[in-house]
Design a protein around this nucleic acid. Structure first.
Lengths: 352, 352
DNA sequence: CTGTTAGCGCTTTCAC
DNA sequence: GTGAAAGCGCTAACAG
C-alpha cells in the first residue's frame, strides 16, 4: 500500500519517533536530520496518514458545514467560501445538507460528531438547541445565518432587521404605501427580524401596518407563489412586493409572469439575498444583499479562532452581525397611481 | 470524552473483542450476548469511532466528490444527490471544488487520497489522467460529466451529442436556418460532443455549417456575453441561438436584455441543462435537460458497485450514457422572416 | 538531540 | 462462543 513513517525511518536509519519529529517540524531535531528526513520522505513519496494521526491526536482535519440546501444562492457561496478557506489551511469540508429538517439535523450532527470533526459551522433549524449545546462541549461550533434560541453558541448573523428596514424604506421613499411582504417563518431569526425591519420602516413613514399584506411562510417557491397570488387578489393590492424570503422568489416570479404583470410598471419588486440570476433577470432585480460571502468568511474566522483557543474556556461567546446592503437595479419604480398594482386601479385586475 | 468499546465491554463484563463482535453484527457471538451488548451499548450511548476503525480497516467511510463549482445547477443537484444517497449508506461526502483548474484538481486528489476516501466521484478537468489512473489503483473512482482522455476510468456521461442534436433539430424543425451555437471548450467531452450534435442536425437538415455562427469558449458568463454580442453583430445574425454551455447562459441573457431583444419574437433561445431559474424566467426558457439527477444517481450506483467489488479486479470498465431530454417551454418560436434576428432584417439592428 | 515505550480505539487472527 | 494479544500509523511522554 502506501509508504508509512516507518518506511521513511527505516530508509533513513533513524527511529520512527525521530522521523515523526523531523517531519512534524517540531524543531526538536537537528537541522541536518530534519533536512535529510524531509528529503527522504519526499523521495519515497511519503504522505502522513491523517487517520492514524487523528486517532492519536483526536483531530481529524475535517470541518463540518451543515446547510439546508444548495439551491439557495447564499448557501452555495457559503459552501464555496468555507471549502476554499479551509482547504488553504489543510482542512477538508464535510458538507451536509439537512433540508431544514430538525430530525435530519440531529442525525447529521451525530454523524459529524462521530467523524470527530475539528469544527462545525451550522445553519441551525432552531429545533436542536440542546443537541448543539451538548456538542459544543466537544467541538467548536459556530452558528450561521440563523440563531438557535435553545442555545447560546457563537453566532454569525446577517443584519436582517436593518436589511429589511433599508429595503422597505427604499420602497416607501419611492412613494409606495401598500407594500406586500413575503417573508420567512417567524420561528426563524431571519424571518422575525426581516418582519420587524419592515414594520419599523412602515412606522417611520407613518404607514399603518396591514396584516393582509404580510405573508410569512416556509422557505419554498410554493410559498412565494401562493402568497403572491393572495396579495394580487386583494381588493386593494399592493403596488410593491418585498420578497424577503429567498426561496420564495421563484414562485413570485412565476406568478407575476403567469398574470402578465410587467415589472416594475405594474408592480415594483424587491428581493432578498444575492443571486447571479437576479442580476441578469430582465428587468434586473433590485435586492437587499445579506452579504453571504462576508457571513461565511466571518464564520470561518470565528471558527478558526475557537479551534485555536481550544480549551481556553471562558472565551466570551458573541453574536456577530454582517451589515446588509441595498442594491438598486431596475425592478422598482416610483409609485404611480395609474399603475395596475396600485389600489387606485383595483378593479382593473379583471384584465388578467 | 466519549464512551469507547472498552467501556461497553467493561460494563458488560466481557472482553473487548467480544463486544466488538457482538456490536459488529458479525454473527459470531451468541444471540444472548449480542442482545445484551447492544442494549448496554445503547444505554451507555456508545458510538463507534470511525477513525479508529478506519485505521484498522483502511476505510474511512468518506467519499469524495470533486466538482468545478456550485454555481452550475447541475453540480448543485449532483452534490445534493451524492450526499443524500451516501448518507443513507453511512458514508459522508467530502465536497471539493477545484474550479476546473488542473493544478487545483491535482492537489485536491492528493488530499482526498490522504484522507483515505473509500471512493471518489470526480468531474475531471481532463488534464490529470495520469494522476487519476494512479489513484484508481488505490480507490474506486468514477468520472462524471466529462471524460479524461488520459485515462480509461469508468465514466458516466450525458448523451451530449444526442442532446445537442435533438435541440438543434428542434430549432431547424421550427424553420430556423441560421442558428448560433455557444458551446464549451472543445477540449472537454461535453464541448466536443455538443458541437458534433449540432453539426449533425444541421447536416441532416441540409443546412451548411457556418463557422461564424459557432462560438466555443470557457464555461463562464463572460463567454456567453461576448459570443452573443458577436453573433448579433453579424451582418447576417442568427434567428436562433442555442446556448449549449450552461455557465454562458447568464451572459447571453444579459446581452439580449441590454439590446432590448424580445425572446422569442426577436430571437429564439434554447439553453442546456436544467435550472429552476429557466423555468420561472420570463419567457420560460426551453432547454435540453442533461439529466443531472440521473447522472449523479448512476455515478453513485457505479461507485458503490466498485466499492463492493473491491479487488475483484478485471471488472470491465464501462462508459455509461444518460439520455438527454428536450424540454419545450416558451423561448423558441417558428422562424419568422420579418423578425429582427433573421437575416432578412439584418439592417434593422440599428434600432438598438 | 535521539531512541524506547506506550498507547489512541478498534478489528482480527489465534488459541482455548 | 469467547478471551488474549497483536497491530493499523502515528504522536508523545519518558529516559538517556
Amino acid at each position: 500500500m502506501s509508504v508509512t513513517l516507518k518506511d521513511v525511518a527505516l530508509a533513513a536509519r533513524v527511529s520512527i519517533s525521530t522521523a515523526s519529529r523531523a517531519l512534524g517540524g517540531s524543531g526538536l531535531t537537528s537541522e541536518r536530520t530534519q533536512q535529510r528526513l524531509t528529503r527522504i520522505a519526499r523521495e519515497l513519496g511519503y504522505r502522513p496518514n491523517p487517520i492514524a494521526r487523528g486517532l492519536k491526536t483526536g483531530q481529524s482535519r475535517l470541518v463540518g458545514l451543515l446547510v439546508h440546501n444548495l439551491a439557495n444562492a447564499s448557501f452555495q457561496v457559503m459552501a464555496e467560501v468555507v471549502q476554499a478557506r479551509l482547504k488553504a489551511l489543510g482542512y477538508q469540508m464535510l458538507l451536509c445538507i439537512a433540508g431544514d429538517d430538525p430530525q435530519l439535523e440531529s442525525d447529521t450532527l451525530t454523524t459529524l460528531a462521530d467523524h470527530r470533526v475539528d469544527g462545525l459551522i451550522v445553519v441551525p433549524t432552531g429545533k436542536n438547541g440542546a443537541r448543539l449545546t451538548a456538542l459544543a462541549n466537544e467541538i467548536p461550533i459556530v452558528c450561521l445565518v440563523r440563531r438557535d434560541d435553545g442555545t447560546d453558541l457563537e453566532t454569525v448573523l446577517a443584519d436582517d432587521s436593518e436589511g429589511a428596514f433599508v429595503g422597505t424604506r427604499y420602497l416607501t421613499g419611492l412613494g409606495h404605501r401598500r407594500i406586500g411582504l413575503i417573508v420567512g417563518r417567524p420561528d426563524t431569526t431571519s424571518g422575525r427580524e426581516r418582519l420587524s425591519g419592515y414594520v419599523r420602516a412602515l412606522r417611520e413613514a407613518s404607514i399603518p401596518v396591514d396584516d393582509t399584506l404580510i405573508h410569512a411562510g416556509h422557505f419554498e417557491p410554493e410559498t412565494g407563489a401562493a402568497s403572491c397570488r393572495k396579495l394580487l387578489d386583494l381588493t386593494e393590492p399592493p403596488s410593491a412586493i418585498f420578497v424577503a424570503n429567498h426561496e420564495a422568489t421563484l414562485g413570485v416570479l412565476r406568478v407575476t409572469a403567469e398574470r402578465g404583470l410587467s415589472i416594475p410598471d405594474d408592480l415594483s419588486l424587491l428581493c432578498y439575498e444575492h443571486s447571479p440570476w437576479f442580476e441578469w433577470h430582465r428587468p434586473a432585480i433590485s435586492i437587499v444583499d445579506n452579504g453571504a460571502r462576508d457571513l461565511a468568511n466571518l464564520a470561518v474566522d470565528r471558527l478558526l479562532h475557537r479551534m485555536d483557543a481550544k480549551g481556553n474556556g471562558a472565551d466570551s461567546v458573541r453574536e456577530y452581525r454582517v451589515g446588509a446592503r441595498l442594491v438598486i437595479r431596475d425592478s422598482c419604480r416610483p409609485f404611480d397611481p395609474a399603475a395596475r398594482g396600485s389600489s387606485a386601479t383595483k378593479l382593473s385586475r379583471s384584465k388578467a
